[in-house]
Design a binder for these strands. Structure first.
Lengths: 343, 343
DNA sequence: AACGGTTCGGAATACGCTTTCCCAAATCGT
DNA sequence: ACGATTTGGGAAAGCGTATTCCGAACCGTT
């Protein structure tokens, strides 16, 4: 009389215990092979029963009982952006290695939303909360965010930031300043002299560090980069496109355009081409990050490599207390066809 | 005498109730504004107390009590691959809109691992399980995977597959056959006549459908694509590179190379260039998917657009019973510079 | 053979929350 | 104005697990 496949409930530990003819406690102990031992006649029975029933422990129940979960929460600005998806891949891989599962959400570069997401994620009682994505200084939600993170921390949670050493939490530090400085040095060595840049707003820490680092590198060689030669736009491909458009009227004044990240550089190259200017030939282009795409664009893009997956892995290690705190991530200048040696 | 900030426990509903001077039940009812109403003196007190304490409901406990979670599990082959990260972005956005949180893992294209991950994910008791990633037919783990998914389904879970109509579950169907066929028609119309292809193994459903569709499109115009002219390799950028290398010795026999997905096409273009052959000039190149990268490579790649984020969103909608089952995803041929009109 | 000490299964309790169930109080009908 | 009905707070019973505590069975001494 019963409907053939009405949604039965998943087997519980109780079912396993009954099936095996033992108590709940014995069943539990047999399955998570923990502290106390279970003697052989029993243990085997439980394992068999569990297999027979296709038992999978309810992680929520486990979390309630043990008072802690096995999850890490990851917040990124934009999942489809290769910068973040590479980092996410690193986090997920590392998490997986230690038996943690990661839940992910996208802030869409909106700090209001980021705050909401942190609140929502806290409901999961994750062991770790990782925030990636450039933070704006002096944002109206900064205080609330900080308070939320501190509350999380004070209840035993670990929080790790990626790159954005804006907030007082453990951070995977990318030395954006030094990376950009080294890039500038390499470019000068190649013969470039007249520079322009495309950057994000100065309150964006990452953008600012890269720009000032680049400036410092130029200054080391007595070259100046005036504010007039810096286009300020959004931190996206389309931002890079728009930034290049601003520079194009005076493009003959420059022999190199530095975009503070690769997606912007790619957008800039596109704008240049659309304006009939050959990137890498009439004007050099350089970016930052070394996302996978940039070795496949033409000309291949000169950039500063960040080992993105490693950054993700490191973020988790840091939170778990596994990683060496201080060791900064090593970056490396990668010279490609977009910056040929110049006369 | 107590250490200043030893990890206190997060406030519980019990704390809130006490702080507000009401019972547990009243506190619970006030907070999730459900069925029964709570009168004003009480309700306000509870809300205030919750705010004061910074209370965030423990989702695990809620899940145990209600017998259901608000999570969706997403399994993809590779998170850093733009194809999957775009789909993931769509899933996450859609999930977020309906208050679901998504937990994500990567199968690394290993079916053994995929099976393990499904098992692990089941522990979360997600409402929905979404599998993306090309499945190999006749895989040794296929039976076990299928059994696992069916078990999940029989306990009320919803499973949705993306693209891979290999298993008997709800699927977001991409008409790979028709898309490739339309592409072939467009290319013939542009004047191409001598075709080569780079594909994955035939047991990979997606690869096979695209290849047979492409063949069908050519056949419509009386053109044949021999097996000798199809390089079979891995479904990755490097696979595409290797595939092109196979074809290069005979490259003058062809006027167009079709790679069954964009990352392979990008790899192929790279191989061609490395061999001194100008893609788009000496030989046309076409791909499939329209990942973001391909409009920025040079020449920009001709491809078949799949609205990837929409696919992700649709997968979730399907599982939630919100989407129109049958409506197949609309694909569209995008002609770009990699396939200029010929002759 | 008797005794203290160890091992380990089972009953019971706890975890944080939702949801019945009970019953006093408030509301309504006439 | 009084009984019938609705309203809504509180106690308590779960949800599926882990774990403490108890006591019976087992061990090695002497």
């Amino acid at each position: 009389m019963t409907s053939p496949d009405l949604p039965a409930n998943p087997p519980t530990l109780h079912d396993v215990a009954r099936e095996a003819g033992v108590s709940l406690a014995t069943a539990s102990r047999s399955l998570n092979g923990s502290a106390r031992t279970v003697r052989e006649p029993y243990r085997e029975k439980v394992l068999a029963a569990a297999a027979r029933l296709g038992y999978t422990p309810n992680l929520s129940a486990q979390a309630v009982a043990k008072g802690s979960t096995m999850t890490v929460a990851l917040l990124v600005a934009d999942i489809a952006d290769p910068y973040f998806s590479s980092i996410a891949a690193g986090v997920i891989r590392a998490a997986d290695d230690v038996g943690l599962v990661v839940t992910m959400a996208a802030t869409e570069r909106d700090t209001r939303r980021e705050l909401e997401l942190v609140r929502a994620m806290r409901g999961q009682r994750p062991r770790v909360l990782i925030l990636a994505g450039s933070r704006v200084e002096g944002d109206e939600n900064e205080l609330a965010l900080r308070a939320e993170l501190e509350a999380f921390q004070s209840t035993g949670g670990r929080v790790t930031l990626i790159s954005q050493n804006t907030l007082p939490f453990e951070t995977v530090l990318l030395d954006n300043f030094e990376g950009a400085r080294a890039l500038a040095a390499s470019l000068v060595e190649l013969g470039y002299r007249r520079f322009a840049a495309i950057s994000g707003v100065a309150s964006l820490r990452t953008a600012r560090d890269r720009l000032t680092g680049f400036r410092a590198g130029l200054a080391d060689h007595g070259i100046d980069l005036s504010d007039d030669d810096v286009a300020v736009t959004a931190f996206t491909r389309d931002g890079g496109y728009a930034g290049a458009e601003q520079l194009i009227p005076r493009i003959t004044d420059f022999d190199l355009v530095f975009a503070v990240n690769d997606v912007m550089a790619v957008g800039a190259m596109s704008a240049l081409r659309d304006a009939g200017i050959a990137p890498g030939v009439e004007v050099g282009v350089a970016g930052y990050d070394d996302i996978p795409t940039v070795r496949d664009v033409t000309p291949a893009l000169t950039t500063v490599r960040i080992p993105l997956e490693e950054v993700g892995a490191r973020a988790l290690a840091l939170a778990m207390g596994t990683g060496e705190q201080s060791a900064p991530i090593a970056t490396e200048v990668i010279l490609r066809a977009s910056t040929p040696r110049r006369g």
